[in-house]
């Protein structure tokens, strides 16, 4: 009787070929997906570099916007983006990490906290144009910053804030409870525990997540258009209330011109933008490695 219900090893061994086949097919599907993505990326990079690289010259960095393509440069946009980021990074980092610490370490785990949490996650998915409209209403009009570095910087900071908060929360949540217990067990206060145990452990995660969020602020165009950032700018800002232009605005402007030369300039601008993004991601990797080395 028992023999009828017992599994037969011969039968199972007979199925191995089929299982291995499935194994191979699945691997092939994933490989194709990766190859597809890589090829598109390579084509895109090839087009941009072959189009824009000849236009990269010292003059390109030195010149302001111009009606004549051969004289047009990207100086105002590069410097403008740096100005804007000098507002975005501290604003989003302080508000974002502060919020994350509060939600993870101080807030009671009740319905209100969960509601706030859900809204922050949802904000991360709100289209960037909406943040532009918010910035236009609050910073440009109500606070009267005009279409300045400050208005655009605050708008972009709000845009990336949800991502900074969520990334920081995840990094803080990953701190082992045993370490916090060790600190509390020695009579440390909550702040001492956060400052000396939680933050040092969480900083690689916070930095990596935040820098990726900041990269988004560098590449976003829509909020800048809504806030009213000009595209044809032949001066550098000398203060945070001055008008300016940024890299994606300049690229957007050049691509919308009819002349082919301007399209090539746009490609050159994109190369610069990509360079800045790669630089920022490298910083993220560097921070992660540096802190993990301990």
């Amino acid at each position: 009787m028992e023999n009828t219900t017992r599994v037969k090893s011969e039968e199972m061994i007979g199925r191995i070929d089929g299982r291995l086949m499935k194994n191979k097919v699945i691997k092939g599907i994933f490989l194709t997906a990766t190859a597809f993505t890589s090829i598109i990326l390579i084509v895109l990079l090839y087009r941009i570099i072959s189009q824009g690289a000849p236009y990269l010259s010292w003059d390109f960095f030195q010149n302001f916007a111009s009606r004549r393509p051969e004289q047009a440069g990207i100086k105002a946009a590069v410097i403008g983006t740096l100005w804007m980021m000098s507002v975005v990074i501290p604003t989003a980092a302080i508000l974002g990490v502060g919020t994350a610490i509060y939600l993870e370490e101080y807030a009671k785990k009740n319905a209100l906290t969960r509601w706030i949490q859900m809204n922050i996650s949802n904000l991360a998915g709100v289209p960037s144009v909406v943040f532009g409209l918010l910035g236009l209403t609050i910073f440009v009009r109500v606070f009267g910053f005009g279409n300045s570095v400050l208005a655009a910087g605050f708008t972009m900071a709000l845009l990336v804030l949800p991502v900074v908060i969520v990334a920081s929360q995840e990094a803080i949540r990953a701190v082992p409870n045993e370490l916090k217990e060790a600190s509390f067990g020695l009579g440390a206060t909550k702040w001492q525990t956060i400052y000396r145990v939680v933050l040092p452990y969480a900083i690689p995660g916070i930095a990596t997540g935040s820098i990726l969020a900041f990269s988004r602020a560098i590449g976003e165009t829509a909020p800048l258009i809504v806030v009213g950032i000009p595209t044809f700018v032949a001066f550098l800002p000398s203060g945070y209330l001055d008008s300016f232009t940024a890299l994606p605005m300049q690229i957007y402007n050049w691509t919308s011109r009819p002349q082919v030369d301007f399209h090539n300039l746009a490609a050159a601008g994109i190369i610069i933008l990509l360079g800045v993004l790669i630089l920022m991601n490298s910083v993220a990797v560097w921070i992660r490695n540096r802190y993990q080395a301990r």
Binding site: E178, E181, S183, G185
Partner: peptide, 20 residues
Amino acid sequence: VEELRTRVGMVFQKPNPFPK
């Protein structure tokens, strides 16, 4: 509670040195 935990030390189940 900070005073109590200063006067009374604790050793935990799993060794938990700080990553320092």
